[in-house]
């Protein structure tokens, strides 16, 4: 099982600093609304970082900035030492071309709250699509790996199903397999279980725990406190576009320092 999971490049370049994600003073506004007001965050290679916070605090926005689905207005985001979305040259920032941004996104997997599987493709086709089209892998090899990945998330018997023929939990597991098929060095999860019936949450969390055990670097936006406590290496609590508190998940959950953290945890626990 485990030999499939973590791509070899995950550990290589990040080794110098050991940091997979470095965000410095990230600001993001939509029009006049400033959603991120200077986020500093560091995630070490192989670490699971859980991002908590009330609705509208900017968690999704921050996650989308990391793979440049949103352009940041100020600050820097580096993934594996590489500046995201820009090139620093002669003291100036140059925007990367679409092609270069796409290349950066290849090594960052993302899992969405609403799965966003391609409905016109079967589970297997969903997983094969990017390796074949984007990475130009030979189809047979991609297929073999996709089958192994789907088997790993417990869907070996559902490969020919269209997303509409799968339950929510199954769809989300296909979505995780689809992201893993690109052999990313970092996985971003945006509330991967909040659109699921309670009975289906466990099967998705199990896959994520498995992934964490295998050393995948993950940033997980979640309201699953149990998951954060059990699997998280760090917990970041955001509110109003700033990081209010961060630290060891078990310590923060058991003994929150900040009033806003206390209030939030009281509600979700």
């Amino acid at each position: 099982m485990s030999e499939l999971t973590v791509p070899s490049q995950a550990t290589a370049p990040a080794a110098e600093s050991g940091l997979m994600v470095q965000a410095e003073q990230v600001h993001k506004s939509f029009g006049h609304l400033e959603v991120l007001k200077g986020i500093d965050l560091e995630v070490r290679s192989g670490e699971v970082c859980c991002l908590l916070g009330p609705s509208g605090s900017g968690k999704s926005t921050f996650l989308r900035c990391i793979n440049h689905l949103e352009k940041i207005n100020a600050g820097r985001i580096r993934v594996d030492g590489e500046l995201i979305g820009y090139r620093e040259h002669g003291g100036k920032l140059h925007e990367l071309r679409q092609k270069e941004v796409a290349a950066q996104r290849r090594s960052i997997g993302m899992v969405f709250q609403r799965f966003n599987l391609f409905p016109h493709m079967t589970a297997l086709e969903n997983v094969i699509e990017a390796p074949v089209r984007v990475k130009r892998e030979p189809k047979a090899a991609a297929r073999e790996r996709a089958e192994a990945l789907l088997a790993r998330v417990g869907l070996g018997d559902k490969m020919g199903n269209y997303p509409g023929q799968l339950s929510g939990g199954q769809q989300q597991r296909v979505a995780i397999a689809r992201a893993l098929a690109m052999q990313p060095k970092l996985m971003l999860f945006d509330e991967p279980t909040s659109a699921l019936d309670p009975e289906l949450v466990g099967e998705v969390l199990d896959v994520m725990k498995d992934l964490a055990r295998d050393g995948m670097t993950m940033i997980v936006v979640t309201h699953e406190i149990g998951f954060a406590r059990e699997v998280g290496d760090s917990l970041v609590f955001m509110d109003g576009g700033v990081v209010v508190e961060q630290g060891n998940p078990r310590e923060v959950i058991a003994n929150p320092q900040h009033d806003r953290t206390k209030a939030f945890l009281a509600k979700v626990l």
Partner: peptide, 19 residues
């Protein structure tokens, strides 16, 4: 969400339109 998922996988604009 479809466009976002395709972009997150590193697809180019042409690929995401066509595929």
């Amino acid at each position: 969400g479809q466009t976002e998922a395709a972009q997150a996988l590193g697809m180019s604009r042409g690929q995401l339109l066509r595929r």
